Simulated scan of single mutants.
Amino acid sequence: MEKILDKLELWKDIFIKNIPNITIALVVLIVAYFSSRYMSNLVNRAIGGKIKQKSVRNLVSRIASAVIFLLGLYFAMTILKFDDTLKTIVSAAGVSGIVVGLALQGTLSNTISGVVLSFRKNLNIGNWVETNDYAGEVIDINLNYFVIKEADNNMVVIPNKMILESPFKNYSLTTKMRIAIECGVEYGADLEKVEKLTKETITNNFNQKKLEKEVEFYYTEFGDSSINFLCRFWVDSENALEKLKAKSNAIVKIKQAFDAAGINIPFPMRTLEFVDDNKLNIKEIAKQKVSAN
């Protein structure tokens, strides 16, 4: 017990003796912390006009911030006279680096992948992408993971390695998207009139002339209750949500145009035949919708 008390007394004397150094070291760490944050913002603004990719700007600013903080940490350890300890750590890092590298192989792979992704010109923060069965807006690309904000406002965090090794679809690389709508009309309809009306409806509501595109219209098959067709057209869009809204609007406009022109869109119906009082014969038939007349 006396040895423990003597040791504690010795540590107390050392602590009191080094209070000025500890105070200076803490001040250096605090200054280094705020300086690193300021340096991050400064670098981001300085290279903002030269580097358009936000992911690259973020990467460079984070590296600059880390360098400033590490320098502050080094000065703080020097003030506390931990030079020998620091040299020992650096020397041991070379020996243990291989072991740590093997243990952190997945993490290092994600870090390298994050650097590669940051410099890719076809992928940037703010783009709407689809990859690994997820689709959404790219929120962040850092050294460990890739963050996507889905349409339902959920955040998806994906390791960088998976993004780099998997195909992805970037909707933001082009400003135009093609939409395909499948529909059917009754067998008694005037097919030429249907085609003309559909093309006019799409052209008038989605300005195909401005996009320098033409509406495509093709009859595809004789269905059970209708003659089916495929209509394809282009819209100004950079993400899947805008495409979905445009498709919904097109369906509404086509339906309104068909109703105004008296063109029916048939649908399968079930007919029940009562043979007698005790038996019921059910037939599944495809019957066209007819008017009340």
Score class of each variant (00 low, 15 high):
172 S>H: 03
149 K>E: 12
145 Y>P: 00
159 P>C: 01
192 E>Q: 11
116 V>T: 11
145 Y>D: 12
176 K>R: 06
185 V>I: 15
127 N>F: 10
165 E>L: 00
190 D>W: 11
138 V>W: 06
188 G>V: 12
189 A>Q: 11
149 K>W: 09
141 I>N: 07
191 L>S: 11
109 S>Y: 01
163 I>T: 01
159 P>G: 02
179 I>M: 14
112 I>W: 08
120 R>E: 04
172 S>E: 03
116 V>K: 13
193 K>Y: 10
187 Y>A: 12
182 E>W: 15
134 Y>T: 07
174 T>N: 08
120 R>L: 05
191 L>I: 14
196 K>N: 13
137 E>T: 10
154 N>L: 09
118 S>E: 06
121 K>H: 06
119 F>L: 14
134 Y>H: 13
113 S>V: 01
133 D>V: 11
192 E>S: 12
175 T>A: 06
180 A>K: 14
142 N>Y: 08
155 M>D: 10
138 V>G: 06
190 D>G: 10
119 F>G: 06
108 L>S: 04
113 S>C: 02
184 G>C: 14
164 L>F: 02
200 E>P: 03
129 V>W: 01
122 N>W: 05
119 F>W: 03
178 R>V: 10
167 P>F: 02
124 N>W: 07
148 I>R: 00
200 E>F: 09
171 Y>Q: 02
154 N>P: 04
110 N>Y: 02
131 T>R: 00
116 V>N: 09
136 G>N: 06
126 G>F: 11
148 I>V: 11
164 L>S: 01
136 G>Q: 03
117 L>Q: 01
173 L>T: 05
117 L>H: 00
138 V>K: 00
126 G>R: 10
139 I>D: 07
201 T>H: 05
167 P>L: 03
165 E>Q: 04
113 S>L: 01
143 L>P: 09
192 E>F: 10
113 S>E: 00
175 T>M: 05
201 T>M: 04
186 E>Q: 14
194 V>K: 07
198 T>W: 07
168 F>M: 00
195 E>Y: 10
144 N>R: 12
155 M>E: 13
130 E>I: 03
132 N>P: 04
187 Y>L: 14
116 V>D: 12
157 V>D: 04
117 L>T: 01
176 K>D: 06
123 L>S: 01
121 K>S: 10
170 N>T: 05
195 E>Q: 15
145 Y>E: 14
157 V>I: 11
197 L>Q: 07
107 T>Y: 14
161 K>E: 01
192 E>H: 11
140 D>L: 05
118 S>V: 07
202 I>G: 07
109 S>K: 12
124 N>T: 11
124 N>D: 15
131 T>A: 08
140 D>R: 07
145 Y>S: 12
140 D>A: 06
118 S>C: 09
187 Y>T: 13
124 N>Q: 15
188 G>H: 12
186 E>R: 13
151 A>V: 13
169 K>H: 06
128 W>I: 04
132 N>T: 02
125 I>V: 15
109 S>E: 04
